[in-house]
């Protein structure tokens, strides 16, 4: 296990270097310079030049790239080009907000989707199964920003049941925060329900047809015991992998939902940084999201290895 984790960490470092390099060069080739983007189109050119000089964005590209790498290695991402404040505290705040939203969305999705998938698998080809599959396909086909908009209009504006702005003051109580996050979390849960439910269904069907499941049933175990002890831990392995990928996406990719609900998570923060050529913020943000992805997949791999010891043994051979 230690060798497994060590190898993954080494790969992670290479991944981070690749991320930083790609982000740097993509930002560099975009038109408009940093000073002009920050100060706007009406600022005098002298002011723009002075700002570029202060930020160091007028230096040769290779110098800027090496400077960026140095900052990453020393974990000193510096200050935002846009607001002049240290980058990491701002990103951690955004990360916390994204974590809350992601956590609530997963809390809503996972139990329901897994239960639905197992339920459908046990009633394969019957009406309940077909209904759940259809529901899953439909829900995952509708983009979350469409669902979000419908929820805002119906639940937020017309019925006024929940707030339309997901952002709450820092001092807000937990129930208030949950109420504010319920709509965006539901919008995402509806989409992810489809993926997770269908993956669970497929995995459960495969395991239900396996020899060891039949053996367990013939040994005299009740159906519930068979499900709990033999089926679920094998059927959910692919589902765990899907969830891991979704976790990473939830942290950095739900820009549309964040925009609709005026919620500044990592997605909005990095979009703003990209639009304003705020390279320190963008670089640090991409690295953080990359770390989230890597941790999520590492956790998924370890979970799968725990669920199925053969996976662990194969990797250590």
């Amino acid at each position: 296990m230690a060798r497994f984790i060590g190898r993954r960490l080494l790969l992670s470092l290479i991944t981070i270097w690749l991320l930083v390099t790609i982000v740097f060069f993509i930002t560099y080739v975009l038109p408009n310079d940093v000073g002009r983007t920050i100060l706007g189109p009406f600022a005098p050119q002298e002011t723009v030049d002075a700002l570029n000089q202060r930020l160091g964005t007028d230096r040769p590209i290779i110098v800027q790239y090496l400077d960026t790498l140095t900052r990453v290695v020393t974990l000193n991402f510096g200050d935002s080009y846009v607001n002049g404040k240290p980058v990491l505290p701002q990103l951690f705040d955004a990360m916390v907000r994204s974590a809350k939203l992601a956590g609530l969305a997963l809390l809503l999705t996972i139990p329901i989707a897994i239960a639905a998938g197992v339920y459908a698998a046990r009633r394969r080809d019957r009406r309940a199964d077909r209904g759940i599959v259809l529901l899953g396909v439909t829900s995952s086909s509708i983009p979350e920003f469409v669902t979000g908009t419908v929820l805002v209009v119906v639940v937020g504006v017309q019925l006024k049941l929940l707030p339309v702005i997901a952002t709450t003051p820092p001092s807000a109580s937990i129930p208030t925060q949950i109420a504010a996050l319920l709509m965006p979390a539901t919008a995402m849960a509806i989409v992810y329900f489809g993926y997770i439910a269908r993956m669970t269904r497929a995995g459960t069907i495969e395991v239900l047809q396996s020899d060891y499941t039949r053996t367990a049933a013939m040994k005299g175990l009740t159906p519930n015991q068979v499900m709990r002890k033999h089926v679920l831990r094998n059927a959910l392995i692919p589902t765990v992998a899907v969830i891991a990928v979704q976790v990473g996406y939830l942290f950095g990719g739900i820009i549309a939902v964040e925009k609709i609900f005026t919620y500044n998570g990592m997605g909005q923060t990095m979009l703003f940084a990209a639009q304003n050529k705020d390279l320190p913020m963008l670089t640090a943000g991409v690295i953080l999201v990359g770390i989230v992805y890597m941790l999520a997949t590492l956790a998924a791999d370890m979970t799968m290895a725990w669920m199925n010891p053969r996976i662990r043994l194969d990797s250590e051979r």
Binding site: V164, I165, T262
Partner: peptide
């Protein structure tokens, strides 16, 4: 979103 926030009070 500003308009929506107003409509949502």
């Amino acid at each position: 979103p500003m308009v929506t926030a107003y409509q949502g009070q």
